[in-house]
Protein backbone atom coordinates (compact mmCIF):
# COMPACT_ATOMS: atom_id res chain seq x y z
CA UNK A 1 0.00 0.00 0.00
CA UNK A 2 1.35 3.40 -1.01
CA UNK A 3 1.31 6.76 0.74
CA UNK A 4 -0.67 8.66 -1.85
CA UNK A 5 -4.15 10.12 -1.72
CA UNK A 6 -6.32 9.72 -4.80
CA UNK A 7 -9.17 12.16 -5.44
CA UNK A 8 -11.88 10.98 -7.81
CA UNK A 9 -12.60 14.16 -9.76
CA UNK A 10 -16.22 14.96 -10.56
CA UNK A 11 -17.11 16.66 -13.79
CA UNK A 12 -20.41 17.11 -15.52
CA UNK A 13 -20.42 18.41 -19.09
CA UNK A 14 -16.75 19.30 -18.86
CA UNK A 15 -17.08 21.41 -15.70
CA UNK A 16 -15.28 20.27 -12.55
CA UNK A 17 -17.22 20.45 -9.28
CA UNK A 18 -15.94 22.75 -6.57
CA UNK A 19 -15.88 19.86 -4.08
CA UNK A 20 -13.19 18.23 -6.25
CA UNK A 21 -10.89 21.18 -5.47
CA UNK A 22 -11.84 20.99 -1.79
CA UNK A 23 -10.91 17.30 -1.84
CA UNK A 24 -7.57 18.07 -3.53
CA UNK A 25 -6.83 20.58 -0.75
CA UNK A 26 -7.71 18.07 1.97
CA UNK A 27 -5.90 15.32 0.09
CA UNK A 28 -2.69 17.36 -0.12
CA UNK A 29 -2.63 17.78 3.67
CA UNK A 30 -3.30 14.09 4.29
CA UNK A 31 -0.68 13.07 1.73
CA UNK A 32 1.88 15.38 3.36
CA UNK A 33 1.26 13.67 6.70
CA UNK A 34 1.72 10.27 5.02
CA UNK A 35 4.81 11.30 3.08
CA UNK A 36 3.05 10.89 -0.25
CA UNK A 37 1.32 13.06 -2.82
CA UNK A 38 -2.22 13.85 -3.89
CA UNK A 39 -3.31 12.54 -7.28
CA UNK A 40 -6.57 12.62 -9.20
CA UNK A 41 -8.62 10.20 -11.27
CA UNK A 42 -10.63 11.81 -14.05
CA UNK A 43 -13.26 9.86 -15.95
CA UNK A 44 -15.36 10.99 -18.89
CA UNK A 45 -15.22 11.63 -22.59
CA UNK A 46 -13.51 14.56 -24.33
CA UNK A 47 -11.91 15.89 -21.16
CA UNK A 48 -9.89 18.68 -22.79
CA UNK A 49 -7.83 20.77 -20.38
CA UNK A 50 -9.44 19.41 -17.20
CA UNK A 51 -6.25 17.54 -16.17
CA UNK A 52 -4.34 20.84 -16.20
CA UNK A 53 -7.00 22.45 -14.01
CA UNK A 54 -6.66 19.57 -11.54
CA UNK A 55 -2.88 20.08 -11.60
CA UNK A 56 -3.35 23.79 -10.79
CA UNK A 57 -5.30 22.76 -7.69
CA UNK A 58 -2.55 20.41 -6.56
CA UNK A 59 -2.90 17.05 -8.34
CA UNK A 60 0.66 15.76 -8.78
CA UNK A 61 -0.58 13.24 -11.32
CA UNK A 62 -3.89 12.73 -13.12
CA UNK A 63 -5.08 9.29 -14.15
CA UNK A 64 -7.35 9.84 -17.13
CA UNK A 65 -9.93 7.42 -18.48
CA UNK A 66 -11.34 9.12 -21.58
CA UNK A 67 -13.89 6.99 -23.39
CA UNK A 68 -17.35 7.34 -24.97
CA UNK A 69 -18.61 4.64 -22.58
CA UNK A 70 -17.86 7.07 -19.72
CA UNK A 71 -19.48 10.12 -21.34
CA UNK A 72 -22.24 9.93 -18.76
CA UNK A 73 -21.74 8.85 -15.19
CA UNK A 74 -22.81 5.35 -14.24
CA UNK A 75 -22.02 3.62 -10.97
CA UNK A 76 -21.09 0.43 -12.78
CA UNK A 77 -18.93 2.03 -15.49
CA UNK A 78 -17.05 4.13 -12.93
CA UNK A 79 -16.67 1.26 -10.46
CA UNK A 80 -15.38 -1.12 -13.13
CA UNK A 81 -12.88 1.43 -14.43
CA UNK A 82 -11.66 2.58 -11.01
CA UNK A 83 -11.41 -0.91 -9.51
CA UNK A 84 -9.33 -2.06 -12.49
CA UNK A 85 -6.57 0.51 -11.94
CA UNK A 86 -6.78 1.13 -8.17
CA UNK A 87 -5.21 -2.27 -7.60
CA UNK A 88 -2.11 -1.09 -9.47
CA UNK A 89 -1.98 2.46 -8.08
CA UNK A 90 -2.60 1.38 -4.46
CA UNK A 91 -3.49 4.72 -2.89
CA UNK A 92 -3.67 4.82 0.92
CA UNK A 93 -6.79 6.98 0.79
CA UNK A 94 -9.45 7.60 -1.85
CA UNK A 95 -11.57 10.77 -1.61
CA UNK A 96 -14.66 11.77 -3.57
CA UNK A 97 -17.26 14.49 -3.00
CA UNK A 98 -20.41 13.51 -1.11
CA UNK A 99 -22.50 14.63 -4.08
CA UNK A 100 -25.25 12.80 -5.96
CA UNK A 101 -22.43 11.14 -7.93
CA UNK A 102 -20.03 10.47 -5.06
CA UNK A 103 -22.70 9.09 -2.73
CA UNK A 104 -23.87 6.76 -5.50
CA UNK A 105 -20.40 5.61 -6.53
CA UNK A 106 -18.40 5.30 -3.29
CA UNK A 107 -20.43 2.51 -1.61
CA UNK A 108 -20.44 0.45 -4.80
CA UNK A 109 -16.67 0.91 -5.18
CA UNK A 110 -16.02 0.14 -1.49
CA UNK A 111 -18.07 -3.06 -1.70
CA UNK A 112 -16.19 -4.07 -4.87
CA UNK A 113 -12.87 -3.60 -3.09
CA UNK A 114 -14.13 -5.28 0.09
CA UNK A 115 -13.47 -2.20 2.25
CA UNK A 116 -15.51 0.14 4.42
CA UNK A 117 -16.53 3.70 3.77
CA UNK A 118 -16.63 6.94 5.78
CA UNK A 119 -19.52 8.93 4.35
CA UNK A 120 -20.14 12.66 4.15
CA UNK A 121 -17.07 13.67 6.19
CA UNK A 122 -16.54 17.21 7.42
CA UNK A 123 -12.98 16.84 8.73
CA UNK A 124 -10.11 14.51 7.87
CA UNK A 125 -6.81 13.98 9.66
CA UNK A 126 -4.05 11.41 9.99
CA UNK A 127 -3.32 9.72 13.33
CA UNK A 128 -0.73 6.94 13.61
CA UNK A 129 -0.56 6.72 9.85
CA UNK A 130 -4.30 6.09 9.45
CA UNK A 131 -7.18 8.28 8.37
CA UNK A 132 -9.43 9.63 11.12
CA UNK A 133 -12.62 11.16 9.74
CA UNK A 134 -15.29 13.25 11.43
CA UNK A 135 -18.79 12.83 10.09
CA UNK A 136 -22.14 14.21 11.21
CA UNK A 137 -24.73 11.59 12.16
CA UNK A 138 -28.42 12.03 13.00
CA UNK A 139 -28.33 14.87 10.42
CA UNK A 140 -25.80 16.74 12.54
CA UNK A 141 -27.32 16.19 15.98
CA UNK A 142 -24.03 14.41 16.78
CA UNK A 143 -20.59 13.93 15.26
CA UNK A 144 -18.79 10.59 14.93
CA UNK A 145 -15.01 10.26 14.74
CA UNK A 146 -14.30 7.12 12.76
CA UNK A 147 -11.45 5.12 11.27
CA UNK A 148 -11.37 2.45 8.62
CA UNK A 149 -9.78 -0.99 8.65
CA UNK A 150 -8.40 -2.21 5.35
CA UNK A 151 -7.01 -0.39 2.33
CA UNK A 152 -7.68 1.80 0.56
CA UNK A 153 -9.48 3.96 3.10
CA UNK A 154 -12.39 5.53 1.21
CA UNK A 155 -14.17 8.68 2.34
CA UNK A 156 -16.72 10.98 0.79
CA UNK A 157 -16.33 14.66 1.57
CA UNK A 158 -19.24 16.97 2.30
CA UNK A 159 -19.23 19.91 -0.15
CA UNK A 160 -18.80 23.51 1.04
CA UNK A 161 -17.06 22.64 4.32
CA UNK A 162 -13.33 22.58 3.57
CA UNK A 163 -11.56 25.43 1.78
CA UNK A 164 -10.65 25.46 -1.91
CA UNK A 165 -6.84 25.66 -2.15
CA UNK A 166 -5.28 28.67 -3.88
CA UNK A 167 -4.69 27.49 -7.48
CA UNK A 168 -1.29 27.79 -9.15
CA UNK A 169 -1.47 30.28 -12.03
CA UNK A 170 -0.09 27.74 -14.45
CA UNK A 171 0.54 24.03 -14.24
CA UNK A 172 0.75 21.20 -16.74
CA UNK A 173 -0.66 17.95 -15.52
CA UNK A 174 1.37 14.78 -15.45
CA UNK A 175 -1.20 12.61 -17.21
CA UNK A 176 -1.30 8.86 -17.05
CA UNK A 177 -3.94 7.37 -19.33
CA UNK A 178 -5.76 4.39 -17.87
CA UNK A 179 -7.97 1.85 -19.57
CA UNK A 180 -11.63 2.79 -19.48
CA UNK A 181 -12.84 -0.64 -18.44
CA UNK A 182 -16.47 0.44 -18.28
CA UNK A 183 -17.63 -3.15 -18.85
CA UNK A 184 -21.27 -4.14 -18.84
CA UNK A 185 -23.31 -1.15 -17.67
CA UNK A 186 -26.82 -2.28 -16.74
CA UNK A 187 -28.21 0.86 -15.03
CA UNK A 188 -27.77 3.57 -17.69
CA UNK A 189 -28.49 7.27 -17.59
CA UNK A 190 -30.66 7.92 -20.64
CA UNK A 191 -31.52 11.56 -19.98
CA UNK A 192 -30.82 14.45 -17.64
CA UNK A 193 -33.62 16.83 -16.75
CA UNK A 194 -32.44 20.23 -15.52
CA UNK A 195 -34.09 22.22 -12.77
CA UNK A 196 -35.88 25.49 -13.48
CA UNK A 197 -33.98 28.12 -15.44
CA UNK A 198 -31.25 29.70 -13.35
CA UNK A 199 -32.21 27.88 -10.17
CA UNK A 200 -29.43 27.10 -7.71
CA UNK A 201 -29.56 23.76 -5.86
CA UNK A 202 -29.64 24.05 -2.06
CA UNK A 203 -26.90 21.42 -1.74
CA UNK A 204 -24.44 23.61 -3.66
CA UNK A 205 -25.55 27.11 -2.77
CA UNK A 206 -23.45 29.77 -1.03
CA UNK A 207 -26.60 31.53 0.08
CA UNK A 208 -29.99 29.96 0.86
CA UNK A 209 -33.25 31.82 1.44
CA UNK A 210 -35.64 29.40 3.08
CA UNK A 211 -39.37 29.46 3.85
CA UNK A 212 -41.42 27.54 6.40
CA UNK A 213 -44.94 27.25 7.73
CA UNK A 214 -45.08 31.05 8.02
CA UNK A 215 -45.20 31.54 4.23
CA UNK A 216 -48.78 30.22 4.42
CA UNK A 217 -49.08 28.72 0.94
CA UNK A 218 -47.32 28.17 -2.40
CA UNK A 219 -47.75 31.83 -3.40
CA UNK A 220 -46.16 32.86 -0.10
CA UNK A 221 -42.82 31.77 -1.53
CA UNK A 222 -42.91 34.70 -3.99
CA UNK A 223 -40.96 37.20 -1.81
CA UNK A 224 -38.53 34.41 -0.86
CA UNK A 225 -37.89 33.50 -4.49
CA UNK A 226 -37.49 37.17 -5.33
CA UNK A 227 -34.88 37.71 -2.59
CA UNK A 228 -33.12 34.51 -3.68
CA UNK A 229 -32.90 35.82 -7.26
CA UNK A 230 -31.39 39.09 -6.07
CA UNK A 231 -28.76 37.23 -4.03
CA UNK A 232 -28.22 34.47 -6.66
CA UNK A 233 -29.25 32.17 -3.84
CA UNK A 234 -31.04 28.83 -3.65
CA UNK A 235 -34.60 28.57 -2.34
CA UNK A 236 -34.90 26.28 0.68
CA UNK A 237 -37.90 25.07 2.64
CA UNK A 238 -38.78 23.43 5.92
CA UNK A 239 -40.49 20.06 6.10
CA UNK A 240 -43.76 21.77 7.08
CA UNK A 241 -43.81 23.70 3.79
CA UNK A 242 -42.87 20.64 1.73
CA UNK A 243 -45.37 18.33 3.44
CA UNK A 244 -48.10 20.92 2.89
CA UNK A 245 -47.34 20.65 -0.83
CA UNK A 246 -46.29 24.30 -1.23
CA UNK A 247 -42.89 23.50 -2.75
CA UNK A 248 -41.03 20.46 -4.13
CA UNK A 249 -39.10 18.15 -1.84
CA UNK A 250 -35.80 18.89 -3.61
CA UNK A 251 -35.87 22.22 -1.72
CA UNK A 252 -36.25 20.66 1.74
CA UNK A 253 -33.55 21.38 4.30
CA UNK A 254 -33.34 19.19 7.41
CA UNK A 255 -33.22 15.61 8.52
CA UNK A 256 -35.46 14.19 5.79
CA UNK A 257 -34.16 16.72 3.30
CA UNK A 258 -30.71 18.11 2.66
CA UNK A 259 -28.04 19.03 5.13
CA UNK A 260 -26.53 22.31 4.02
CA UNK A 261 -23.52 24.47 4.87
CA UNK A 262 -23.92 27.77 3.02
CA UNK A 263 -22.16 31.00 3.95
CA UNK A 264 -25.51 32.61 4.63
CA UNK A 265 -28.85 31.00 5.51
CA UNK A 266 -31.89 33.27 5.73
CA UNK A 267 -34.78 31.49 7.49
CA UNK A 268 -38.15 33.13 6.84
CA UNK A 269 -41.20 32.04 8.80
CA UNK A 270 -39.40 28.92 10.03
CA UNK A 271 -39.94 28.13 13.70
CA UNK A 272 -36.87 25.87 13.93
CA UNK A 273 -38.03 22.30 14.59
CA UNK A 274 -35.19 20.08 15.79
CA UNK A 275 -35.01 18.16 12.52
CA UNK A 276 -34.73 21.42 10.53
CA UNK A 277 -32.05 22.90 12.81
CA UNK A 278 -30.01 19.71 12.41
CA UNK A 279 -29.83 20.28 8.67
CA UNK A 280 -28.77 23.95 8.63
CA UNK A 281 -27.04 24.63 11.94
CA UNK A 282 -23.58 24.41 10.38
CA UNK A 283 -24.33 27.36 8.06
CA UNK A 284 -21.67 30.00 8.61
CA UNK A 285 -24.12 32.85 9.25
CA UNK A 286 -27.84 32.47 9.97
CA UNK A 287 -30.48 35.20 9.75
CA UNK A 288 -33.97 34.45 11.06
CA UNK A 289 -37.19 36.32 10.48
CA UNK A 290 -40.17 35.17 12.53
CA UNK A 291 -43.24 36.70 14.15
CA UNK A 292 -42.76 34.66 17.31
CA UNK A 293 -39.90 36.02 19.45
CA UNK A 294 -39.81 32.65 21.30
CA UNK A 295 -39.24 30.61 18.10
CA UNK A 296 -36.30 28.18 18.55
CA UNK A 297 -34.78 29.38 15.27
CA UNK A 298 -33.59 32.53 17.10
CA UNK A 299 -31.38 30.35 19.33
CA UNK A 300 -29.18 29.42 16.36
CA UNK A 301 -29.47 32.68 14.40
CA UNK A 302 -26.62 35.19 14.39
CA UNK A 303 -29.10 37.94 13.58
CA UNK A 304 -32.83 37.81 14.20
CA UNK A 305 -35.67 40.08 13.20
CA UNK A 306 -38.97 39.66 15.02
CA UNK A 307 -41.61 40.53 12.46
CA UNK A 308 -43.82 39.44 9.60
CA UNK A 309 -41.78 37.92 6.78
CA UNK A 310 -44.07 39.52 4.18
CA UNK A 311 -43.01 42.95 5.49
CA UNK A 312 -39.39 42.18 6.34
CA UNK A 313 -38.25 40.08 3.37
CA UNK A 314 -39.07 42.72 0.70
CA UNK A 315 -37.32 45.33 2.87
CA UNK A 316 -34.24 43.11 3.10
CA UNK A 317 -34.30 42.68 -0.66
CA UNK A 318 -34.43 46.44 -1.14
CA UNK A 319 -31.43 46.90 1.16
CA UNK A 320 -29.45 44.11 -0.52
CA UNK A 321 -30.20 45.59 -3.93
CA UNK A 322 -28.94 48.99 -2.80
CA UNK A 323 -25.80 47.39 -1.38
CA UNK A 324 -25.08 45.20 -4.40
CA UNK A 325 -25.51 48.08 -6.85
CA UNK A 326 -22.81 50.11 -5.08
Amino acid sequence: MGNNVLVIAEQRDGVLKKVTFEALGAGAQLAAALGGQVEAALLGNGLGNLPDILARYGAAKVYVADDPALARYSAEGYTNTLAAFLGKVEPAIVLVGATALGKDLAPRLAARLGVGLACDCTALEIADGRLVATRPIYAGKALARVKLNGDPQIATLRPNVLPVPEPATEARAVVEPVVAAAGNIRARVVDIIGAGEGEVDVAEANIIVSGGRGVGGPEGFAPIRSLARTLKAAVGASRAAVDAGWIEHSHQVGQTGKTVTPNLYIACGISGAIQHLAGMKTSKVIVAINKDPEAPIFKVANYGIVGDLFTVVPLLEKEFKALLSE
Binding site: A142, A144, V300, G304
Partner: peptide, 18 residues
Protein backbone atom coordinates in the same frame (compact mmCIF):
# COMPACT_ATOMS: atom_id res chain seq x y z
CA UNK B 1 -14.70 -2.16 8.30
CA UNK B 2 -15.44 1.15 9.98
CA UNK B 3 -14.77 1.69 13.64
CA UNK B 4 -16.30 4.52 15.65
CA UNK B 5 -13.68 6.05 17.93
CA UNK B 6 -16.07 8.39 19.73
CA UNK B 7 -19.25 10.35 19.33
CA UNK B 8 -19.24 14.06 20.12
CA UNK B 9 -21.97 16.65 20.49
CA UNK B 10 -21.96 19.18 17.66
CA UNK B 11 -20.25 22.50 18.45
CA UNK B 12 -22.66 25.01 19.99
CA UNK B 13 -23.38 28.11 17.98
CA UNK B 14 -22.48 31.31 19.80
CA UNK B 15 -25.56 33.17 21.00
CA UNK B 16 -27.04 35.43 18.37
CA UNK B 17 -29.00 38.58 18.83
CA UNK B 18 -32.33 40.08 17.92
Amino acid sequence: RLETIEILPPPERPAGRI
